[in-house]
């Protein structure tokens, strides 16, 4: 589903954000992307959504070569990927409804259908009845959920979340991560960037570890085995998924 092979990213200012990163995430997997801030997690997301282009290497999303995608096709790639941003990227002067509906308005869905879907999505993240509020009046956790509702409204096959529990307390963090686990249960491929190792251990999912732009670990956590470090051959880059 998401395949990176020998990705390098150097920014115009000379900063090397990613160095020879390769991994492969299968459809329906839920994977954590761990590492300190500045390790290259955000850059990785920007490459997957074609906000940035890699300096070298190839990225495949659902068998499409993202780095070779023409500008005109980029919006269609983004429609397949739901992204939850660390800073939410909500429009503060619009209502919750308008924010969540945006991905559907973009594809020209009729208003009645949009209404139904927005209600359903807000229900799923526990924000029923807040349609007409402005995001600015909501708490940080609630804003994060509005972002999640917007990311899933178009039923994407991939969910990317950048530090979704960033500044939330433990209980709220658990709730948010559980929402992602629910989507993963119904077949959505989920990739969550986090430095919250508690969540990584709690869910015991596959974890990619980035350190200073390099992939230094690709672990499969087992519920019995809490000490990370058990590197599994897992999914190699050479494996073709079609």
């Amino acid at each position: 589903m998401i395949k990176l092979s020998h990705i390098n990213k150097r920014y115009p200012n000379g900063h090397e954000a990613l160095k020879d990163v390769s991994f492969h995430i299968e459809p329906g997997e839920m994977v954590f992307l761990a590492g300190h801030s500045g390790a290259g997690k955000s850059t990785l997301f920007k490459l997957i959504t074609r906000i940035e282009k890699p300096t070298s290497g190839q990225i495949f999303i659902d068998k499409k070569n993202v780095s070779r995608l023409s500008e005109a096709k980029v919006p269609f790639l983004r429609r397949e990927i739901g992204v939850i941003f660390q800073d939410h990227k909500l429009l503060m002067d619009r209502t919750v409804f308008d924010n969540v509906a945006l991905p559907l308005i973009v594809i020209g869905m009729p208003h009645d259908e949009i209404k139904k879907r927005v209600r359903a999505a807000l229900g799923k993240v526990g924000l029923s009845g807040k349609e007409s509020q402005k995001p600015i009046t909501l708490s940080g956790g609630e804003q994060q959920r509005v972002g999640i509702a917007r990311a899933v409204i178009n039923r994407p096959s991939i969910l990317l979340a950048d530090e979704p529990t960033g500044n939330l307390d433990e209980a709220l963090s658990d709730e948010i991560i559980d929402i992602f686990a629910d989507f993963n249960q119904v077949g959505v491929t989920v990739l969550i960037a986090t430095h919250d190792l508690r969540q990584v251990e709690r869910l015991a999912k596959r974890t990619l570890h980035l350190e200073q732009g390099q992939l230094i670990g690709d672990y499969q956590h087992n519920s019995q085995e809490n000490n990370a470090g058990n590197i599994q051959p897992g999914t190699s880059q050479e494996q073709q998924d079609g």
């Binding site: 919006p75 269609f76 429609r79 990227k89 973009v106």
Partner: peptide, 15 residues
């Protein structure tokens, strides 16, 4: 901001 977010959720340039 609106333009940026719209592009992020898959809005085409024409849209």
């Amino acid at each position: 901001d609106e333009i940026e977010v719209t592009k992020l959720v898959g809005g085409t340039n024409i849209f």
